[in-house]
Design a protein around this nucleic acid. Sequence first.
DNA 1: CGAGTTTGACCGGCGC
DNA 2: GCGCCGGTCAAACTCG
Length: 512
Amino acid sequence: MFRFPVSLGGPSDNLNQTQPSDEQQHRAVMDEVDFFRSEKRDDQNMITEETHRLHVKRENSRVDDDDRSTGINTGLNLLTANTGSDESMVDDGLSVDMEEKRTKCENAQLRDELKKSNEENQRLKEMLSQTTNNFNSLQMQLVAVMRQQEDHHHLATTESKDKANNRHEAPELVPRQFIDLGLPSAEVLSDERTTVRSGSPPSVIDNSSPRQRGKRILEREESPETESNGWGNPNKVSKHNASSSNCNGNGNAIDQSAAEATMRKARVSVRARSEAPMLNDGCQWRKYGQKMAKGNPCPRAYYRCTMAVGCPVRKQVQRCAEDRSILITTYEGNHNHPLPPAAMYMASTTTAAASMLLSGSTMSSQDGLMNPPNIFARTMLPCSSSMATISASAPFPTITLDLTESAANVNSPTNNNPLMQFAQRPGFAELNQPGLYYNQQQSKFSGLQIPSQSLNAGESVGAATAAIAANPNFAAALAAAITSIINGSNNHQNGNSNSSNNNVTTSSVDRQ
DNA sequence: CGAGTTTGACCGGCGC
DNA sequence: GCGCCGGTCAAACTCG
């Protein structure tokens, strides 16, 4: 009987969703017109102002309704006036009927207010969702730019170093090559070519046989789907990018694919206690393989996202060998399609974590905590402190969000990050205190503190974006990050130039 | 019958 | 060069 407006298509959609009586309709039209006239005046205002204006509007509506009810009473006093209108016919009724009418009017008014509140909520959710999307895309671009500048810097430093040391520095080329493997981009290729030109031994430049490499490249390029298979060794990605760049020489495409490959390489591992075989993260997955991993009696399952054709996102699901109640889900890649709200939250979280990881991986160990990109990233990651582990030993840059520790603080006022609350949703089962560790350099960073509120699946996106937007550090961190890139990139690079070898701390060189 | 799962085979990287 | 291991493929199978 009572219908809540659920359309996302804007308030105008809701005009046809209810069929009120003539009186209600009249009142609804009055309110709608009044509301949107008010809205149009301040169309570009901030959300909070809109909300406030909505509140003010309600007060005005009540005043209007009171005036109207006064008018009805006035009509009562004009019983002698037989106008023949509908309203006068109503006014001819008994006082009891008038009370009923008034009650109906009030109900209708409340419904209108509720409806408009819901409309406003939907609009706000939509705006927040859009803001989230914009934020994520901006974040991706930011990471890509940062990596591009980092690679430019590597190119400059390695070229100068090669010229200075000529051919006596062959051993240093090995770590640099690993740097390149970890950071596939157009500049990486330039670096490789530069290295060859500088007279380095070919065996150092290309450890694997070119014939084999070319064969692998061809095999990977034959299938459009395998092109996006960044799950494997990072060498594949790098070499694949190398081949594609040599073939087409399209700089923009290279940058995009490089950034994409870079993002795809990063893994975000989520540890959570769950009896379910797989976490309910809102996405649709198709299992494409299962293997027995060494050192773990539990099989590892491989899934790929099936919400869109060609979506590169994959995940591994495996139970912890030590504690089989812990489910380890490892995500890789970014969705290339719209996500439902329930899935968007997890995707946003993993994307933010991956961005944090990637931006942090380009930094030296010394400034890892203080550099703006890391501040930016840690601010984006909606986790409290001591909740994520950046793995230095893993073959891929991996950040682990550990949701498995003691649940003592889950409901405490200080532990309100949306990821934890997401983890309390069905599928995440029992949940314990988060532990976010920045193990790589033994340094910790703090995350967001989110206003306490309970979440359900439908509110996850709104809560996450609200959490990000509401954080007072967010704007400052974002400004710092952007300012760092625009104005302070030299400083950042200079800081890294003193420890260029440290730039690989997070990624592949740690395998050595 | 189509979509999803299972499972053995295959491939490539890596260490010895 | 060989074997191990992780990741993927694809045919067979299951299920709704």
